[in-house]
């Protein structure tokens, strides 16, 4: 039973919580605001918060100067592509782990998790050399391959925790009803697991979108996603705050919105089911 809380107390908490929340969010808010300023207003001191001449010029300039849309497209292809391929490989694996667990299932799951803990620098050189020899450096396919592999354990784990909540009896019922393996997965398991699969997809797109070790090290110009696009503003363009802000806003906004939608599943996905 929740206790009745005095209005006064609630008011105080409201003020404190909003202040803290806005402070944490401020860098993002400030970036978004600055992206609508002129370069002069962006570095004005004291800075103006809302009272400036709003302009979209920065966005146009960022697009024309460094081709935002190409990088955006690369980000979409790489993050969505790697997630979809990952799901394709992970759904059957998670099915077997959740519904036909054997003595080794737990070991396999733990081992998969352990691959996620391999620090990327440990394999940076071989991957770099292999990719160089295979002509995969600075290619979208190469990045899709790498991101599929680094996120595969998370995808398997998330699906596994969702599948486990589906009663095995329902799949057995489908088997009794004459469903073969394909029908069992397509007509019974997947439709029931839609919410879980959707949040798995969402979280992994986010993780792949923001991945910045491999995307920075394995891409140059052709395949560069938004992480690399922004890194290009490191210097000296970074001193043009308004343009940097416009570029940053465009890089972050799509995934921030997706992230807000998937926040409920975030905890479970990122803790491999250890915290629900």
């Amino acid at each position: 039973m929740a206790r009745a809380v005095s209005t006064r107390r609630k008011l105080v908490v409201t003020v404190v919580a909003w202040t803290v929340g806005l402070l944490i969010f401020f860098p993002i808010l400030w970036t978004a605001l600055t992206s609508f300023k002129t370069e002069a207003e962006a570095i004005a001191s004291p800075p103006s918060f809302l009272a400036f001449d709003w302009t979209l010029a920065n966005y146009a300039e960022v697009q024309s100067r460094s081709d935002y849309f190409r990088h955006f497209l690369n980000s979409v292809i790489i993050s969505v592509g790697s997630t979809l391929i990952g799901l394709l490989v992970a759904v059957p694996a998670a099915w077997s782990m959740a519904f036909v667990p054997g003595r080794r299932t737990k070991d396999v799951l733990m081992w998969m998790l352990s691959t996620k803990m391999l620090p990327p620098v440990g394999v940076l050189i071989p991957i770099y050399l292999l990719f160089r020899d295979a002509g995969l450096l600075d290619s979208r396919i190469g990045l899709v391959i790498v991101l599929t592999l680094i996120n595969l354990p998370i995808i398997v784990w998330m699906l596994f925790t969702y599948f486990r909540e589906i009663p095995a009896e329902i799949l057995e019922a489908a088997r009794m009803d004459g469903a073969d393996f394909k029908s069992e997965i397509l007509h019974v398991l997947l439709p029931m697991a839609v919410p879980g699969i959707a949040s798995t997809l969402l979280l992994n797109v986010i993780l792949a979108w923001n991945e910045a070790f491999w995307t920075l090290n394995l891409s140059a110009s052709q395949s560069a996603p938004l992480t690399a696009f922004i890194a290009g503003y490191s210097s000296p363009e970074g001193l043009f705050y308004a343009k940097l802000s416009a570029a940053s806003t465009m890089a972050v906004a799509p995934i921030l919105i997706l992230g807000w939608f998937s926040q409920k599943q975030l905890v479970r996905g990122l803790t491999f089911g250890a915290v629900k």
Binding site: E169, I170, E172, A173, A174, P191, M192
Partner: peptide, 11 residues
């Protein structure tokens, strides 16, 4: 077979 939990397809 009729299961204890009925095992109906919820979707």
């Amino acid at each position: 077979m009729v299961f204890q939990s009925y095992a109906l397809y919820p979707h």
